[in-house]
Amino acid sequence: MQHHTVLHVVAKILLPLILLFALYVQFHGDFGPGGGFQAGVIFAVGLILYGLIYGVDILKEAIPSRVLRVLMASGVLLYAGVGVLSILMGGQYLDYGVLAHDPLHGQHWGIFFVELGVGITVASVMTSLFYAFTS
């Protein structure tokens, strides 16, 4: 894929849009269709497109696989950490109502961070699967 000018140019235009769309899906998931799982996959697809067209090695320079390994674990930890935090604030595990003064606000914060954790884990696992299978 090194010599396809059209692909290079199109990918360069599409890539930021795909990543931006992934972030939109992540943070707008409460109101429309979307959420952590979809956003993670779309983000990873954007990175994989870049890797397929410009070469995996260039993608690995931008995002080394050790960074992905840390992100994989930190997404799960963020999710579990929200649960622990809600115990510390006096509620039950993963009971977001206690995270803010108003239970509805607490739920909103809880869902925000939980979905973020899911998104981080899914995006980094999918990208590192791509690394494992292409090299």
Partner: peptide
């Protein structure tokens, strides 16, 4: 099913 799809691709991998 939403969660099952993503878990499905991970196990396929």
């Amino acid at each position: 099913i939403l969660t099952a799809i993503v878990v499905g691709v991970a196990t396929t991998a």
